[in-house]
Design a protein around this nucleic acid. Structure first.
Length: 808
RNA sequence: GGGCGCAUAGCUCAGCGGGAGAGCGCUCGCUUCACACGCGAGAGGUCCCUGGUUCGAUCCCAGGUGCGCCCACCA
């Protein structure tokens, strides 16, 4: 097929063809096989409504590279695909579509709305898996799972009931983050914080006995009607004498106590804090500790409620009226500009209302103990290692988890109430109330936090809660690739669910990849217009080049996106293609066999082995950036510039050993590169003779003898000397032949005036420096032996090169 | 306010106790029978600052400066 190889490698068409072929030939498929060792990467399920972004692309490139490497090593690889129902996000997208149609979810009602979501998903959902294929991801697409599949729902219900019976799930009134747009509670992890310009008002709260006032600084005068106390620090001399007395809350003119609490910051504002347990998390805690009531004055819609004269007003409107009232009475001390951070809903970016609400909670106190122990024992390895500490810290400090959401799209809680309010928790609808036997039951309308179901991904995808062959064979798995911010949302929860339900952590290695920043260093974001669409990269440079570029960038540090890295990948693919073209053309029909008969052949085989060992070592540490580096230089410098240049003449001359060896060497190079750049290597593979199997399932080579890796050193030294001085050093045999073939002294420009003298001077200076160093007793005595020996070798080399120049 | 990290060539980044590196960009020369997405030759750096440890520091330690990210209830 060599006549089909064009001088320029074009990935278009080739890559799609291989993606189809590999999948159709079942080469991604994983099935239990007790004779083989499994290797499992349960790839994070993206949002069902999502589109491929750089983070996904990077994550896929990392996971797929490892998985392809393991597959070649003979592991039975399961790379698990799927997508997540993603509660609020999905509800959002569909709601927007409804609004565009002139209707709303409220108008449709819950049942119709859920149907609409399913319809929407059947039409548009899961597009992302098509895009996963374009990344060349070798996922077992037959096994695609959705976190709202019937079986998956069963797993979620089982998990909930399990935790409930353990006594860890409970229902309670607590202050929560309320999104007035979505009309639901949110966990702390679903918020974003932004700085806003605001106004800090200092308001005088008169003492009830008429004797003076306490100044209070607040940014939210609209919450004043729900004040239940004023708190000061117990050691604050300004106010200590007032503790225990009463002040009058403006507008509602209610008498409330002055209390003391250490959580009050003396330095902030006036040092006195109004306590509003209904609308502030700190105040809620202080209020609980002091046994204060918990009234609210702002409703779920964000408007005032239950306050005479303010009902139904927005907070801005209420604020004006309250401040006017205060001003009229001379109680407004000052208004000043104040910049501070506020919490927003990460989905709609509306301001969060803290308010008290009856919610379902999962207590973390007991559930986190086993995971903590496991993490401390390093039963999970984090890459980079520094994330290990963070995983532990974030688990240690994990607060009670608000698991209920007041939205319609998601897993409805398996909780039923009878008319008397008794609670019955069952996996499926119970016939009667567990407490009173009443048969008329109402199901809880709340749904679960999306991450509650995500926590089951590594084993719900394998059939849990049933005891399946898949589960027994593939669980626990091996690899997780994920973004830093997901550690708390997801990694920790998978670890505790796995330990709790199956007694084992679902994976052993967690690779936390970097955040890819825009080329200018800002975050990639659609709204900023700084996003880079991986599909456009694929269209422009090809999948292999895109994968290579992303891997090269994926260091422990956040990195700026670089087109240059992708272009480098494209060049590597083309270089490889042309090296293969040379060998395929010159060695047509020759079977690969390592029969090294000359220096350059022994050398390249040793270099291939050496690089292979390095790649294996680096991949074990998930150090992808250095893998790309090793392979780039192996291909360009060693394989092409030295080996092929040296052996080319013998290939054209029909040297049978050289031809067989060249073909074998190319095969090994292709194998090393396949995990990173699967398509171009597979395409070349088909052009090699007698190929029974696909490269994707070809065995990873045994690394051979590395002892000849330095065999070309004298020739390379000679090349240095020649290039710097124009002098052709004396060499013999293979070395002379290789020098002539690679360096081509007969075609080089003649030695220019002064070049030789400059090189001689340089070498003499090096010799002098080296001799001085070796003459220094303190150096010779204190430096490690290998350093001293190294210096002696260097000196020898400098002297040899000097001799070469000075020879006639 | 806590935690983590980064400052090295024009740009993006490796290296991390003994000769300052790569890719891109730039300059010069090559249409040499695999490849101009190529080959060869070059220019370009107080390795952020100040101290300390050491025979020796870009690398280790302390302090400073400047950036970035994550977390956190200063109203």
């Amino acid at each position: 097929m060599s006549e089909g190889m064009q001088p320029r490698y074009d990935p278009h068409g080739v890559e799609e063809r291989w993606q189809r072929t590999w999948e159709e030939e079942g080469l991604y498929a994983a099935d239990p096989d007790p004779s083989r060792t499994p290797y499992v990467d349960a790839h994070p399920p993206p949002n069902v409504t999502g589109e491929l972004h750089t983070g996904h692309a990077l994550q896929l490139a990392l996971g797929d590279t490892v998985v392809r490497f393991k597959r070649m090593q003979g592991y039975n690889v399961l790379f698990q695909p799927g997508y997540d129902h993603a509660g609020i996000s999905t509800q959002n997208v569909v709601e927007k579509a409804l609004v565009a149609e002139g209707t709303s979810r409220q108008e449709l009602g819950r049942e119709r709305f859920e149907e609409r979501v399913w319809e929407w998903l059947h039409e548009y959902g899961g597009k992302i898996l098509v895009q996963f294929r374009r990344m060349g991801a070798s996922l077992d697409y037959r096994r695609t799972r959705f976190t709202m599949d019937d079986d998956y729902i069963r797993a979620v219900m089982r998990f909930f009931v399990h935790l409930y019976r353990r006594g860890w799930i409970y229902r309670a009134n607590r202050i929560i983050n309320w999104c007035p747009y979505h009309l639901t509670s949110l966990s702390d992890l679903e918020l974003v914080h932004v700085d806003v310009d605001d106004t800090l008002s200092t308001i005088r709260y008169p003492l009830a006995d008429g004797d003076g006032y306490i100044p209070i600084a607040t940014v939210r005068p609209a919450t004043i009607p729900a004040d239940v106390a004023v708190a000061v620090h117990p050691d604050d001399d300004r106010y200590r004498h007032l503790i225990g007395r009463e002040v009058i809350v403006p507008w509602v003119e209610r008498r409330v106590p002055v209390i003391s609490d250490e959580r009050v910051e003396r330095e902030f504002g006036t040092g006195a804090l109004k306590i509003t347990p209904g609308h502030d998390p700190t105040d809620f805690e202080i209020g609980r500790d002091h046994g204060l009531p918990e009234p609210m004055c702002i409703g779920p819609d964000g408007r005032l409620t239950g306050v005479d004269g303010l009902d139904g007003l927005t907070q801005a409107e209420a604020e004006v009226k309250i401040l006017d009232w205060i001003k009229e009475r001379g109680q407004l001390e000052q208004r000043e500009h104040y910049r501070h951070s506020v919490a927003l809903c990460e989905r709609c970016e509306n301001r969060i209302e803290p308010l008290i609400s009856l919610q379902w909670w999962c207590s973390m106190d007991e559930i986190k103990q086993r995971p903590l122990e496991a993490l401390r024992n390093r039963e999970v390895r984090y890459h980079p290692e520094s994330q290990h500490r963070f995983a532990i810290d974030s688990l240690e400090s994990a607060p009670a988890w608000n698991i209920s959401r007041q939205i319609w799209w998601g897993h409805q809680l398996p909780v039923w109430y009878c008319a008397d309010g008794h609670v019955t928790v069952e996996e499926t609808e119970p016939a009667a109330c567990a407490e009173c036997g009443a048969t008329s039951l109402e199901r809880e309308t709340d749904v679960l936090d999306t991450w509650f179901s995500s926590a089951l991904w590594p084993f719900a995808t394998l059939g849990w809660p049933d005891d399946t062959d898949d589960l027994r064979y593939f669980y626990p798995g091996d690899l997780q690739t994920t973004a830093r911010e997901i550690i708390r949302l997801w990694e920790n929860r998978m670890i505790f669910s796995g330990l709790e339900l199956l007694g084992e952590i679902p994976f052993t290695d967690v690779v936390i990849h970097s955040t890819v920043l825009a080329p200018d260093g800002r975050r990639m974001s659609k709204s900023l217009g700084t996003g880079i669409d991986p599909l456009e990269l694929i269209d422009r440079y090809g999948t292999d080049a895109t994968r290579y570029g992303l891997l090269k960038n994926s260091l422990t540090q956040d990195v700026r996106f670089s087109y240059a890295a992708i272009e480098e990948g494209g060049k590597l693919a083309n270089k490889l293609w042309n090296a293969a073209r040379l060998i395929v053309t010159a060695c047509e029909g020759v079977l690969p066999e390592e029969r090294p008969s000359s220096l350059e052949e022994r050398w390249i085989l040793a270099r291939l082995s050496q690089t292979q060992r390095a790649v294996e070592r680096l991949l074990a540490d998930f150090d992808f950036a250095h893998v790309t580096d090793e392979l780039y230089h192996l291909t360009f410098d060693d394989f092409c510039d030295w080996y092929l240049e040296a052996v080319k003449a013998r290939l054209y001359d029909g040297d049978a050993d050289a031809r067989a060896t060249a073909t074998a060497a190319l095969e090994r190079l292709l194998k090393l590169l396949h995990p990173l750049m699967p398509h171009v290597t597979e395409e070349i593979w088909t052009n090699l003779p007698a190929r029974a199997s696909r490269l994707i399932v070809a065995p990873w080579p045994e690394a051979g003898d590395e002892s000849e890796a330095g065999a070309l050193e004298r020739v390379q030294e000679a090349a240095q000397v020649f290039r710097r001085s124009g002098v052709v050093p004396r060499l013999e045999g293979d070395e002379e032949r290789i020098f002539a073939a690679v360096v081509k002294p007969d075609r080089a420009r003649p030695a220019a005036d002064g070049r030789l003298e400059a090189e001689r001077a340089r070498l003499q200076a090096e010799v002098a420096r080296s001799e001085a160093m070796l003459a220094n007793d303190r150096f010779v005595q204190n430096a490690p032996a290998n350093v001293v020996d190294g210096e002696r070798e260097k000196l020898e080399r400098y002297r040899r090169e000097l001799d070469a120049i000075d020879a006639p």
